[in-house]
Design a protein around this nucleic acid. Sequence first.
DNA 1: ACGACTCAACTGGTACAACCACTCAACTGG
DNA 2: CCAGTTGAGTGGTTGTACCAGTTGAGTCGT
Lengths: 244, 244
Amino acid sequence: MPIDLRPLPDGVPRSEGVHARIRAAILAGDPGPDEALPSERELSDALSVHRHAVREALKRLEQAGLVRISHGGPTRVRDWRRSGGLDLLLDVALAPDAPSRPGLLRSVVELRAAIGVDVARRCAERASPDARRALADAARALADVVASHGDGRVERFVALWDDLVDGADNLAYRLALNSLVEGLAAIPGADDALAPVADDADRLRDLADAVVAGDGDAAAAAVRPTLERPLADPAAILGVGAGR
Amino acid sequence: MPIDLRPLPDGVPRSEGVHARIRAAILAGDPGPDEALPSERELSDALSVHRHAVREALKRLEQAGLVRISHGGPTRVRDWRRSGGLDLLLDVALAPDAPSRPGLLRSVVELRAAIGVDVARRCAERASPDARRALADAARALADVVASHGDGRVERFVALWDDLVDGADNLAYRLALNSLVEGLAAIPGADDALAPVADDADRLRDLADAVVAGDGDAAAAAVRPTLERPLADPAAILGVGAGR
DNA sequence: ACGACTCAACTGGTACAACCACTCAACTGG
DNA sequence: CCAGTTGAGTGGTTGTACCAGTTGAGTCGT
């Protein structure tokens, strides 16, 4: 899938459109690693946009780690699997084809589980007593909602994790979670598939107890089943986002 | 620390300089969340660069999640602790002051450990027999180097992790690792402090055995001590990068 | 006096044109 | 055959002008 040079759609900013076109092509692997992109003048000419719009798009791509711009030389595609950061998850999820959705989703779920377990542990060990009590209340409230199939279980779950990460007092966790949720939001149905089910209600109560008690190991053990459940059920993962 | 409007240094691209100035100010928190940035025209005027250079810098900042640009309205600073992705780790590490180094490094080490343990597990369970044998050889070679205080222990260690992540066959892990190593590279002495010491030699051999055997739990258990060691020794973390 | 409307003065988005700075490869001279 | 030159091509920067949204102050009608 080479760079799509058809006229840009109306309504979207030029620079944004150019960015999307080139990004999609690179993620699809056509201008592969180390290959040279057409010059800014060629691109602006082919897409009928001003060169500045192309430059702004290229700057964003460089920031994301997809291309390497060098002064007198051509702009080259980087091996984004090696050079790209976790933020690329969002772009990959949005890409028309890209790596097959199931594999991508499995990746994200695994990373979320790995980080999440540790977040729960650190939070239980590190957050202030007040924060831990508030968290426990939220966890129990969520457990009730989940057990009774009430509304808002997805939102409450996300909010709970937000607070857990805050309690873990770890900037890297915070930023990684941001990247993850952004990426997940781009996959239709993902956050719904990852939210707790009725069976998880008891575990959430365990989590609440562990957090108030400041027991890191217990907190970690309590969240693991919920976080890893989607991995044990390939069908659930396969089904999500399959529609494209 | 408001935006530094002194003349830009020579030798660095204008757009790059502008980007660095605004980024530093935002990370330092002066134009705080939801505050409006000066208009593009004001910035270009104050910094004596063309408006296009400012625009390119702002596009990059938007890509990184630091600002939100809206057409008719002012460009506003975002709450990057909420909206920023893991890629920000690099920028934060490079910021003149930013969150205190020790806390930042502890964060990164914790995240690395959380992911690393899972990487080892998945790799042992999932990689091809050939890849696992090659990994085991590399791990044993590293163990020998470490035990005998030979050269290249940092490079070999990094390379080993690179291969482990490949073996884990997980794009999210791959990208997260990219962000982490980029961020760590920006902290002087960090990768040296995180490399294995003589005591870790035996654990590396355990890892080799676990990987060839395809025993995920054993692999995870083998890498944990090495990855978590820096956390048990606050002095080691505090010392790194203290010089600035 | 109050509401709805108008419009001018911002904001960012785009365009055309020209030039500078750097790279690289083909060419030229020794 | 190699070293130096040079020119075409690349990205970097500037200038100017105008388009396109947003906002709020002013005005008009009621």
